[in-house]
Structure formats: structure tokens, C-alpha cells
């Protein structure tokens, strides 16, 4: 099968899997929301004509208006278009704190009067990035090292395995705290830490698969044919070895989102005043019985995102696994 039709083939397989499709669509919508967050929820107008100037404040704010009061400007402007949710995720308004969901605040407000929906929309950026960055790092590092170790064996395997063991010995919190202590804390650094601590599982899995597969006949055949090592690794062994790694990776993305919320709960996640789902959730912990919207919506969002990633991952795995695309063989 050539490359193009292979891709189509995979794509069609996923499309047929309704669960995976739902998951995929959800992720796409979420990504769009995250990308356009500034345009969807902001106290600045999308477009405004003010003092004879045409401005697009959501995208660029000129120097002299950096600290301006936007409500004022909107009122004095000749024409303006506001985002659908006209609240900033960080705009404090103590007179409106802990309001239940209402037409003016669809998901209510938090303890500082900030609109929950706006915070959720901006918070989606963090949640999406956490998964991608963390798992991206762990995939790249883990698969590469695992493949090297599994394929070449010998002293390289020994060395890499010891390295994996050393990394495994470091408790996660220790590293998080070390990062918080040494560097100025920040959510991106935490994401990197999550990535750097979770590659070991993937590495060991990959290594195990490679060890198993490298002695298979078709690999021996490929070697006899004189294929270069890297071609063997990446074109022949890897696609066959990737299945358990993908399962691991999808859980990884999902768990990274959950880890972010746990870390924020313990005080190590996002910095104020950044919005993140975990942050709203940990506020909600305090207000459980009086402000039910505070724990509910971020919890729901985390929940749905994790679910979506997992379903999509499952579908992807089912589609990609060459062994499962075999014809006929069923129970």
C-alpha cells in the first residue's frame, strides 16, 4: 500500500469507529477554542473604532492603550464588536463573586468575581498543552532510547537500561519541588518535568517489544537483504512495536491533564493569575456545597477531555495495528 492510500485507509478506519470519532471531534473543537480563546472570551473588543482609529485589541494592543480601561473605551467608541463572552479571565470584580450561572455569566463566577466560562476557555490552553508537551517529550525520548536499547542490545542496552532505572528512581514530587525551588515556578516547566519523568515506562515497553521482534524472521530477512539499521528500526520494527506504546501514550496525555489539576491543588501548578481547569477545581474544593458550579464545570471539562483523548487513542490504536487489520480472522 503506498503512503497516500495508507493514510486514507487509517483515516477511514477511524471514521468508522464512532467512539473514536466523537473523541476526535471533541479534541478538535477544544483545540479551536483554545486557539481562539482571546477572541472568544475577552474584556477587550474584537474590533473597535475609537478616536478615529481602527483597532483589533484582541490581537494587538497599541502602546498607549496597554493599561486602558476597556469598558470605558467601548462606551466612548463609535463602533465596536465584543467577543461572545465579554469577560477577561483575570479581571477581578469583587462585587460579583460567587454568582450562580445566569444569563450574564453562563457558568457563574468564582471567588474573585471572575467569569468561570472565560477562565475555562483560556484554561483549555493549559490542559491541551500539558498533554501534548508532556507526552510529546516522553514519546520522543522514550521511544528513541527504548528502540536503541532493544535493537542493539549489548552494552548500549545495559547503559540505557541503567539510565532508565536511575530516572525511575526519582520520585515525581521530588523533581517537581526541585524545579519549583531552583527555577522560577511556571506551568511550562512543570509540563516538561511531567514529560521527563514519564518517558521511562514508554522506553521499557518499546525496548521489550524490540527485543521480541528483532529476532523475528522478517527482520532477519531484512538484514539479509542488506537494509540499513535505521531503515529496519523505523520502517519495519517500529510500526509493529508501536501498539502498546500508543496505548501508553494515550493514557499519558489523559493522565497529564489529571496531574496538572492535582499539582495545582497542592499549590505547584499554574501561577496566579493564570487560569487553568485545575485551579478552578481546587477553588471548588472549598466551595463544594455552596458554589456547585465551581467544582462541577472544570471537573466535567477535565473528565470529557481525558475521555476524548482515550477514546481517540483507542481508535487510533485499533486502526494502526497492522495485526488487527488482517482480514477475516475473528472469533
Amino acid at each position: 500500500m503506498n503512503k497516500k492510500s495508507y493514510r486514507h485507509f487509517i483515516f477511514r478506519k477511524i471514521l468508522h469507529n464512532r467512539l473514536a470519532l466523537t473523541g476526535g471531534i471533541f479534541i478538535i473543537i477544544l483545540s479551536l477554542i483554545a486557539f481562539f480563546a482571546s477572541l472568544i472570551a475577552n474584556d477587550k473588543p474584537i474590533l473597535v473604532i475609537y478616536q478615529n482609529r481602527l483597532l483589533l485589541p484582541c490581537i494587538y494592543v497599541p502602546q498607549d492603550l496597554k493599561q486602558a480601561d476597556w469598558l470605558n473605551i467601548i462606551n466612548k467608541s463609535d463602533f465596536s464588536i465584543s467577543p461572545p463572552i465579554p469577560y477577561s479571565p483575570i479581571g477581578v470584580n469583587l462585587n460579583e463573586c460567587l454568582l450562580a450561572p445566569s444569563p450574564s455569566h453562563w457558568l457563574g463566577t468564582d471567588e474573585n468575581g471572575r467569569d468561570v466560562l472565560a477562565r475555562m476557555i483560556h484554561g483549555s490552553r493549559i490542559s491541551l498543552q500539558v498533554g501534548i508537551i508532556a507526552v510529546g517529550i516522553s514519546l520522543i525520548v522514550g521511544v528513541y532510547l527504548g528502540a536503541m536499547a532493544g535493537y542493539y542490545g549489548g552494552w548500549l542496552d545495559s547503559l540505557i537500561s541503567r539510565f532508565i532505572e536511575i530516572m525511575m528512581c526519582f520520585p515525581f514530587f521530588f523533581l517537581v519541588l526541585a524545579v519549583m525551588a531552583f527555577l522560577e515556578p511556571g506551568i511550562y516547566k512543570i509540563m516538561i518535568v511531567i514529560g521527563l519523568t514519564s518517558w521511562t515506562g514508554i522506553a521499557r515497553l518499546t525496548r521489550g517489544e524490540f527485543i521480541k521482534i528483532r529476532n523475528e524472521e522478517y527482520i532477519l530477512a531484512a538484514r539479509c537483504l542488506g537494509l540499513s539499521n535505521s531503515k529496519i528500526i523505523f520502517r519495519h520494527i517500529l510500526p509493529n512495536a508501536i501498539a502498546p506504546v500508543l496505548v501508553s501514550a494515550t493514557f499519558g496525555i489523559a493522565s497529564a491533564v489529571l496531574v496538572e489539576s492535582s499539582l495545582t491543588f497542592l499549590g505547584f501548578g499554574v501561577q496566579i493569575p493564570t487560569a487553568s481547569w485545575g485551579e478552578i477545581l481546587s477553588q471548588g474544593h472549598k466551595y463544594l456545597t455552596i458554589a456547585w458550579w465551581l467544582p462541577l464545570f472544570p471537573g466535567l471539562a477535565i473528565f470529557l477531555t481525558v475521555l476524548a483523548y482515550n477514546l481517540l487513542g483507542e481508535g487510533l490504536r485499533d486502526a494502526l495495528d497492522p495485526r488487527l487489520t488482517g482480514s477475516g480472522d475473528s472469533w
Binding site: 489523559a254 489529571l258 489539576s261 492535582s262 467544582p295 471537573g299 473528565f303 475521555l307 482515550n310 477514546l311
Partner: peptide, 18 residues
């Protein structure tokens, strides 16, 4: 079963504990 288990997995622990 898959969906149910994933749903279970997706619940944040703080939530569930509370």
C-alpha cells in the same frame, strides 16, 4: 465497557475523594 472504564479513569481524584 471501554467507555465506562474510561469514564471512570477520567474522574479527577480530588473530585472523587470529596
Amino acid at each position: 465497557i471501554t467507555t465506562a472504564l474510561f469514564i471512570l479513569y477520567a474522574i479527577p481524584v480530588i473530585w472523587l475523594a470529596l
